[in-house]
Design a protein around this nucleic acid. Sequence first.
DNA 1: CTGAAAGCGCTTACAG
DNA 2: CTGAAAGCGCTTACAG
Lengths: 364, 364
Amino acid sequence: MRSDHDDETKDPTATVRIVDIARMAGVSTATVDRVIHRRGKVSAGNLARINEVLERVHYRPNLIARSLASGRQYVVAVVTPRFAEGEYWADFEAGIQRAEAEARRFNVVVRRFGFDQYDRSSFERLLELLRRESFDAAVLATLFAERVVPFTGELDRRGIPYVFVDSDLPECRRMAYFGTSSFDAGVVAARLLFERMEAGADIVVGNIRHRGEGGSNQCRERERGFRDYLARHDFGGRLLDVELRLDDEACNARTLDDLFARHPSIAGAVTFNSTCYILAGYLASRRRSEVRLVGYDVIERNRRMLSEGIVTALVAQRPEVQGYRGVMSLCAWLVEGVRPASVNNLPIDILVKENIAYYTNNII
Amino acid sequence: MRSDHDDETKDPTATVRIVDIARMAGVSTATVDRVIHRRGKVSAGNLARINEVLERVHYRPNLIARSLASGRQYVVAVVTPRFAEGEYWADFEAGIQRAEAEARRFNVVVRRFGFDQYDRSSFERLLELLRRESFDAAVLATLFAERVVPFTGELDRRGIPYVFVDSDLPECRRMAYFGTSSFDAGVVAARLLFERMEAGADIVVGNIRHRGEGGSNQCRERERGFRDYLARHDFGGRLLDVELRLDDEACNARTLDDLFARHPSIAGAVTFNSTCYILAGYLASRRRSEVRLVGYDVIERNRRMLSEGIVTALVAQRPEVQGYRGVMSLCAWLVEGVRPASVNNLPIDILVKENIAYYTNNII
DNA sequence: CTGAAAGCGCTTACAG
DNA sequence: CTGAAAGCGCTTACAG
């Protein structure tokens, strides 16, 4: 089939292998391998000759053979909040699982490291643990931005590449970011909410406090975008901030009853995290169907409230895709040396009652 | 490392290989291979024993090694409309390319077969060609439903699995469908259009005729969904059908000028294929910014009209994902024997001016 | 600095 | 019906 000479001209579609390169350059396959992997210990003459051949034939390694032969295993650390079923980060985990299954083929394994998103010190303890662990790359959720930043400095020094998910911190040397533009996700929520409201009506902004922790980096950016849109569209009403509890329905009801009593002109409501089902539950119980409500993320409780027509619209950010691409981009980097684009702004999805039923299967 | 006995109990995470199975069953690897691939020529005793072991250890073949060793190549035929840059099917092709790159690793190659979506006879000629071609599986776009149906009967007889994209034909024995629910995509368009319209205003329905061909299977279903929504929401106006030309702006302008003159109460417009930029161009030229316009698919010309605020909203169906998953599902079936879910209704995406900029990268 | 040889897990003729 | 042996393309000690 393959003649001993001019292999590279005979059949342009034939894959050229290391033995072919070796024969063309008049060396052994081991020497070619050293050049390909820049392991050094190759004479200048051979180096030049082999590189020339590699270039000329556009050598593309067979990654399948490589991973089978090398047995080199890479570990990708995934650092995210812990979660219960039905919570936002469970969707993210679905993407991780999908990536894990694919990456295994290339000897890449995933190790998960969880923290409590409502407890800064739990994140700090996790970082302490990570300092002692060994891994080849990391996916980092950036909720506690001011703790993430210095930690990435340590990773830089250790030469460990990392990607961000959830929200971006452009000042860090992350290899990539996968997530939505939080600011524009705020703009979209504003458009959906304000679209059919009287310009002078008031809007409730529900903030969730839990164990003393305030909003994340991401929530702050969304709120900025939201306010920016309103400012550009002649919003003449007031934004009424209200503090709600994650686990205290009765308390929330009292707070909201009071708020609505004092502001009869409320026509809209919004939350910047995934807990808009709390406000939705209140509106449903008080039969305030005239109040438009927009929130974030298709978690089960929000989905139900949307299907029932209590929530007007949800803005979503494809958490499964964030998880999947976060892991796979590092896999591609470790195994193939392929560098991902640095900023990957995922689509900002809009869900209403009529299309929510199909919002699933975001993982290809 | 690995002791000669009780391999399956020592380390539950260790991958068990064919040699391990062979040793446990007291046969050679070749015999195990015959059982795994159901090639027959194995004694009843060995067959039972090997199957028992396979079962017990949950044997998972190493696909990388398999594809490297076997060299077996599969061909997936992709049968879709030809397209020019910027047209709808170009996005579909992007997904095919992505799948092609991944599938190559498993020795699966794709062969494209194009037809003219505005010329039924071109599709018929293509089917004639396909009867003489050899391939292992096929992705079929179902635009000419009444021609596709009998052809799939032939594929059934040839034992060739196929998946549908674009719209489903449940009466066929397709292995899977990847696409949106066309009916509900029509419902969504109606909601977006009608949301802020007076119930009594009229709506223009733009139909594109090109070289005598009418709408596709998919367009008909979308229109059904659209009308269904209006019927359920007290729509009191009229739906005004109008025939537009793909390449004759002047003619379209005359037609529409006439229509608007006769119906001053028009407040909305819709098209059920990807050419809403035609209506948008007209509305822009006549400065009819009060007319809401909803269409389908984020092709470049629609995207621009949406960004400029001329189109109110677009409904989209992730063509790249359809192409990608169509090919990859067949790849998984051919290589791993994994059967896809039969109906895969993809999300129905809603795009407005505020989120259109990020609607890209739908391929993971 | 260099190359011969063994091996990754699986498949494929081939000889019995 | 069965198994020993070679090979897929690449990597890895190891001996020189």
